[in-house]
């Protein structure tokens, strides 16, 4: 097990490790704060729409497949399709946030919602960044840049599958 064994740019792995660590810490804190008010947290979580989140998971892993193919073949189409998947994810997210706000789910309404918006919002910010990176790389695709963009995109994917259960589903 050597540093050089890691596939791709080392910096991307530092980033992946850091991101996973930060999100994991955030989720842990949320679960810890939940102990102070389990019933309130359960009620608050019940107000979220898990179906949209599950749909978004499918969108992200499909988009991840395109990114992985682009990484292998160096194709522009794969990168743009992956970016399109990210845009679809964001569209669902906006619809979800709008519906949330209409139901009174706001940042200050309950501590759970503070974590909900911080965690998913921070993740969505990474989706936006990922879409931008994918599109920029697609302008003039190179093997190394396509790989770095795809790695970033898989990180966004990875963080999302770890967020999904604790934030939306555990109940």
């Amino acid at each position: 097990m050597r540093i050089d064994d890691l596939p791709g740019e080392l910096l991307m792995w530092v980033l992946i490790g850091s991101e996973v660590a930060v999100f994991a810490a955030g989720i842990t804190v949320m679960e810890a704060v939940r102990l102070t008010d389990p019933a309130g947290f359960a009620t608050a979580q019940g107000m979220l729409d898990g179906r949209m989140a599950t749909l978004n998971t499918a969108l992200l892993v499909t988009s991840g497949l395109f990114a992985a193919r682009a990484e292998r073949d160096g194709g522009r189409a794969g990168l743009l399709l992956a970016a399109l998947g990210g845009v679809a994810f964001l569209a669902v997210k906006i619809a979800e946030y709008t519906a949330d706000a209409a139901r009174g789910v706001t940042m200050e309404a309950h501590p759970f919602f503070t974590f909900y918006y911080l965690l998913t919002g921070f993740h969505a910010a990474h989706v936006i960044a990922g879409v931008v990176v994918l599109v920029l790389v697609a302008i003039r695709p190179r093997r190394d840049t396509a790989q770095a963009a795809a790695m970033f995109w898989h990180m966004v994917d990875l963080v999302w599958v770890l967020l999904l259960a604790p934030v939306y589903l555990l109940g």
């Binding site: 992946i16 990114a67 994917d157 599958v161 259960a165």
Partner: peptide, 23 residues
């Protein structure tokens, strides 16, 4: 649910981020 989340994470690390290639 958490076990499935673990399997998904491993699938991404392995299949998309190619960690199988790094012993």
């Amino acid at each position: 649910l958490l076990a499935v989340a673990f399997l998904k994470a491993v699938a991404i690390l392995n299949g998309f981020l190619h960690l199988t290639r790094a012993s």
